[in-house]
Design a protein around this nucleic acid. Structure first.
Lengths: 236, 236
DNA sequence: CGCAATTTTGATCCGGGTCAAACGTCGTGG
DNA sequence: CCACGACGTTTGACCCGGATCAAAATTGCG
């Protein structure tokens, strides 16, 4: 019994890394029946800040950006969510409206699970809640970490750090065997992620380029000296 | 059946604000029997970074500081925990050693609950896990918020913000009916909390004093113009 | 009453934010 | 197909908040 679009929970690549990995076959079957898998284009949104929370989203593939709009209407990218991540469960759990917008950053396939269904599953399976809990504890720890980094490292360090994280996720080798990376983010968003401004990010890029560590053309990046780049990362 | 020291979960002031509020009478009775309430002096520690997690702590009264030691041996205050808060559950849930040190900042009464007991309670009562989950989701949201504040507001704003938060928790009126506050923190710790340095904090204090907004003598603070102080807070 | 630790003040310097302008790059309509 | 405008990016110039280093002043303690 496959879901629409051929996306079944049983075959989901990321199932074993998500909260759902403790679910029984019966529960997965139920999920397959009620979930709504969808292929979405970059630029569209899963939900908008202020929307009431109708359910949660499980990202099968692609990339989603969580962004917040401030009073002045500027949108600030807060974090990225990748395959296997469940999105919007915070608002679901707190029973509040969404505090942020979830925007598709790359073509993605996403499964939507209605509120009532999640509620039922949580009641049936106590372990599911615990898995969400562990996941969230990790997230919180990561925030703490990021906060710490922001106040103790320079923009350059943070930029290089982000660059390498993105390389791990989206990097590859070109036909010449050189490490390359296609940035899924605008400079604006890069700046927001590391707590800086587009101008300063641009300057960091120029600097890194002048030093011969990497080469930037638009969103294409060629990591010329990846070893040195790694070496300059802040100690974790 | 009261616990030692006369601290019973049934009479706990903070019970209805903690995760335990959904617990049945039977469970509370069990808790009363197995928990180890203790009065602790400022300067002592509940646990140290790197210690293995033997259980969790529920703060009945007082104040606990969560601090991390970096490679150089400097300790950085990450956050404060007040009455009603459960401490150390993150490491418990992840099954890891404590990632931080929990230090008593004011004389406190703390209840310790052994790992095995918590495990049992969590298995019996699925709601307990969900309550922890909600609590942690809120914490994570708060971190996000704080991160956002740190990169978008000045040290002065952050300092005033902290000052008012502390006033809400520890402030009172003196014999003349003026709002006063006894800081439970050193300048070092204040600096760490707002992501700055002791010197800059000291300068902020001088500035605020020169402007006639407040008067500082050691850890004693007299809030001279509390309305103006509130007005200068960053928009929440 | 000293000695050590904390706090304050002073002087200096630099990362990086802000404002502005030049420069692509792309999509739209003439 | 090109001209045009809107936007994102880069670069330049300037300035300020705040970190750092150093030293004096205050506080707390044995």
């Amino acid at each position: 019994m496959t879901g629409k679009l051929g996306v079944s929970c049983f075959g989901c690549q990321t199932r074993h890394t998500t909260e759902w990995c403790a679910s029984s076959d019966a529960e997965l079957t139920l999920l397959d029946q009620v979930k709504a898998p969808k292929i979405m284009e970059a630029g569209t949104a899963l939900f908008h800040q202020g929307d009431e929370c109708g359910g949660i989203y499980c990202l099968n593939s692609g990339l989603v950006g969580i962004r917040r709009l401030d009073a002045a209407g500027n949108s600030t990218l807060l974090r990225l969510a990748g395959p296997g991540e469940t999105i919007g469960y915070q608002s679901f759990l707190l029973g509040t409206a969404h505090r942020a917008t979830a925007e598709i950053m790359m073509p993605s396939t996403v499964c939507f699970i209605r509120r009532q269904t999640v509620r039922g599953l949580l009641e049936q399976n106590p372990n599911l809640g615990l898995r969400f809990l562990r996941h969230n504890v990790k997230d919180a720890a990561e925030f703490e970490e990021r906060h710490f980094e922001t106040i103790s490292f320079t923009v350059r360090s943070r930029f290089l750090n982000l660059l390498m994280v993105l390389y791990e996720r989206f990097g590859s080798l070109n036909e010449d065997g050189e490490p390359v990376l296609d940035l899924p983010l605008s400079r604006q968003d890069i700046a927001a992620l590391i707590g800086s401004t587009p101008e300063t990010v641009s300057r960091s890029i120029s600097k890194v380029q002048d030093e011969g560590l990497a080469r930037f053309k638009g969103r294409k990046v060629l990591l010329q000296d990846i070893d040195e780049l790694m070496r300059q990362l802040p100690a974790s």
